[in-house]
Amino acid sequence: MARKRVTMQDIADACGLSRNTVSKIFNERGTVSEATRKKITKAAQELGYFQFLEEKTSKPGTHSQNIALLTHSKPMNHNFGSSFIINFTDQLCRAGYTLKMYEISTEELTQKKLPPHLMLENTVGILGIELFDRDYLHMICGLGLPTIFVDGYAHVNSSLLCCDLISMENIASIIALTERLIASGAKRIGFVGDINHCNSFYERWIGFCTALGSAGLPLDHSLCILAKDEEPYGDVDWLFARLEEMPSIPDAFVCANDFLAIHLMAALKKKGLSIPADVMVTGFDGSPESAVVEPPLTTVQIPSADIGRLAADILLDRIQNPDRPFRFTYVKTIPVWRDSIR
């Protein structure tokens, strides 16, 4: 008996939600809470929705070979990753390929090894996401398979990698955020995040520094929180302690993503400061949480669904045309102005 096709309505029924709410997650339209997103994603996985996407083909006689998704951090755990993967997978399956996901362990990352169950002879292309280790990326490129990475290690765009890369545009949007803060009266501005965590964080730092320089404002490291990504940025008490170490609280903070911004806002409130009256805060990602935090967070919207579809197109083109020049593709992002700035 043929397996019943899992639909969005099936997922909605399992969650006790409307089909429209489920559609918002998979089509990246509208805003839902993080708890709802996780509930929908979990139900979709349990019902086999993603497995169906991986296994279906739309054209008779097309390829039945695999695309390997390599990641060090499960991409379905955050808003960008879930929307990206759904649309990337759908695009590949329409071309007759199957996506197989492999989570790279810390040991495999350190030793530059592939997962033992990854069969290269059945793999025609590779997608790397949430992989920011320089040597590991170079090892994957050395396999000689069509490969595309989403983002990469800091300064990846200055390396001669034999692969395609795709990323959201970071510099222009951060410049726009910082210039808006300056126009709103901020003269002392700090940055929050590990600028070497990944290339996107590094580019957001570059945009921040560029905007300060263009306005003739100094870069004051004592107003920044630039600790390594391994530090507990999600711990409000830890962030509170970093604020206490500053000579004074700046007029505004530019944060490398929404996760950092939201937790920083909690630490600022714990310090008795009002946002945006005492200090302004911006994020980056356009996460659902950014719209519901109090006050709503000024952020940058990433078109993750479009990036997923475009990444699939680039990889499919690379498979068909392996000798074409490698490409580094940026996809435009859009600032979203909310009440966390004046």
Rank of each mutant, 00 (worst) to 15 (best):
G207H: 01
A186L: 13
L120V: 08
R188Y: 15
N196K: 14
G185F: 02
D194Y: 12
H221P: 06
L161F: 11
P218S: 08
F149N: 05
Y136M: 05
F201A: 10
S184M: 01
I225L: 14
L137I: 04
I225K: 13
L223S: 04
C224K: 10
A215F: 02
L118N: 13
R188W: 11
G216M: 05
D220W: 02
S167A: 11
R134E: 05
N199D: 12
P115Q: 13
C141V: 00
K187S: 10
V124D: 12
G190H: 11
D133F: 06
C163M: 10
I148C: 07
S158G: 06
L114E: 04
A186Q: 03
P115W: 10
I182T: 04
L177P: 03
D194A: 13
A154S: 12
A215Y: 09
H221Q: 12
P116S: 13
L177S: 15
M119W: 09
V150M: 11
L118Q: 14
L177R: 06
I206M: 14
L177N: 15
D135I: 04
I166C: 08
S167F: 05
Y136N: 02
E169Q: 15
D133P: 01
E169A: 15
G185L: 08
H221K: 13
I174R: 14
F149E: 01
S184G: 05
I189V: 09
I148M: 08
R134T: 00
A172K: 15
L131T: 07
V192T: 07
T123P: 04
N199G: 10
K187V: 00
P146C: 07
P116A: 13
L118W: 14
G125W: 00
V156A: 02
M119L: 14
G185I: 03
S214R: 14
F208Q: 15
I140Q: 09
I126A: 09
E203P: 05
I206W: 12
Y136V: 00
F208T: 09
I140R: 05
C141Q: 10
R204N: 02
L177V: 09
F191R: 02
V150R: 03
C163Q: 06
K113G: 01
C163N: 08
V150Y: 12
H117C: 07
S173G: 00
D133L: 07
R134S: 00
K187P: 00
L143D: 06
A211M: 13
F201N: 11
D151K: 10
I225W: 15
C141F: 00
I126V: 11
S184N: 09
E121V: 03
L137Y: 07
I140S: 01
N122R: 12
I175H: 15
D194C: 07
L177Y: 12
P218W: 05
L181A: 08
P146H: 06
G125A: 02
G142S: 13
T210F: 09
K187Q: 13
C198R: 01
G216D: 07
L161H: 02
A215T: 11
D151G: 09
T210G: 03
H138F: 14
V156P: 00
C163I: 00
D133R: 12
D220P: 01
L177T: 12
F201C: 07
K187M: 08
P116E: 10
